[in-house]
């Protein structure tokens, strides 16, 4: 054992202090959002820092859950449904299409494979923000602007997911497929029954990445839709704060809506932490 095993108490105290101060900085914005969503608009505006709502007001949450006269201007229950609906479709689509493509690129040898691989790498060079207007043009041209199809179809496959799955398929031992071939299975059966169950960690990472990407998606849904009935929690929230549904100074409502948007991801994260962190470095960065 080296001297490093013992670090002097003052150093440890310093380490903990740093860690705790930073943890407070990272967690408190969320705490303030929850607390202030239960204040009256007046208290949230004038007394932001107080951690005690006085009086406790449920006005914001009533509106969010569609109760009372104010709820007529917002439709959070529907936006929540849209978020779930669209995210589930996109996630299921990516699990199938990304893993199929990843499998072909990793394990099958077919004419044009190198070309396709090069092509997919090239599409990585296109910044997603540059695609905003173009994708609107295409949706408009195909007549699926402002529809669920238009929100879901363009997101059904993504390059990061294909690469992630390819990486996992590359690590599958030859013998597995060999065994299937000896038994007379065709390529689809080998993929579906033998190889896919083996790359479960990859599928879990892909599921989380896809769900997170579609749940938090803003820019694409913002240009793909215009009617409030197609808003997700994220686009609805953005339009209440800055867009067409601008709701003035209603901080409790905005913060409550933020909490509702963030909460499902936080719960998933707390339950599935290790899978989240494993997938995080696999090519997806938000910002």
């Amino acid at each position: 054992m080296s001297a490093r095993t013992y670090s002097p108490p003052y150093k440890r105290a310093l380490g903990y202090t740093g860690l705790i101060v930073l943890a407070v900085l990272f967690i408190f914005p969320f705490v303030f959002s929850v607390v202030n969503s239960f204040k009256t608009t007046a208290q949230a505006t004038n007394d932001a820092i107080s951690l005690v709502p006085n009086p406790v007001s449920l006005a914001a949450w009533k509106q969010i859950f569609g109760v009372g006269p104010a709820a007529a201007t917002t439709d959070f229950p529907r936006w929540l449904f849209n978020s779930v609906f669209v995210s589930v479709f996109i996630t299921v689509g990516r699990i199938f299409l990304d893993s199929l493509a990843g499998y072909a690129l990793a394990r099958l040898r077919f004419p044009g494979r190198k070309m396709i691989f090069g092509f997919i790498i090239a599409t990585l060079a296109v910044p997603s923000v540059v695609l905003l207007i173009p994708i609107f043009l295409v949706l408009k041209q195909f007549g699926i602007f402002n529809s669920y199809e238009g929100m879901i179809l363009p997101m059904l496959a993504d390059v990061t997911g294909i690469f992630l799955m390819r990486q996992f398929f590359l690590q599958v031992p030859d013998a597995l497929e060999e065994a299937g071939r000896v038994d007379g299975a065709n390529i689809w059966q080998i993929y579906w029954k033998l190889v896919l169950p083996v790359v479960r960690p990859g599928l879990i990472a892909l599921t989380i990445l896809s769900f997170q990407a579609s749940w938090n998606q803003f820019q694409f849904f913002e240009v793909a839709t215009i009617s409030p009935k197609y808003f997700t929690l994220v686009t609805g929230l953005a339009n209440i704060v800055g867009g067409g549904l601008s709701a003035g100074n209603q901080f409790p409502l905005k913060l409550g809506a933020s909490v509702l948007t963030v909460l499902p991801m936080v719960i998933l994260f707390v339950v599935l932490q290790k899978y989240f962190m494993r997938g995080a470095t696999a090519g997806s960065v938000k910002g």
Binding site: N216, T261, F269
Partner: peptide
């Protein structure tokens, strides 16, 4: 601590911006 620091990364950038607008408003 690792989870606490990673937490903002899993959340919506729009929701975070709304929260920061509130934190940094005049009062």
């Amino acid at each position: 601590f690792r989870s606490a620091y990673y937490l903002p990364s899993v959340t919506s950038s729009i929701a975070i911006t709304v929260i920061f607008i509130y934190l940094f408003q005049g009062a």
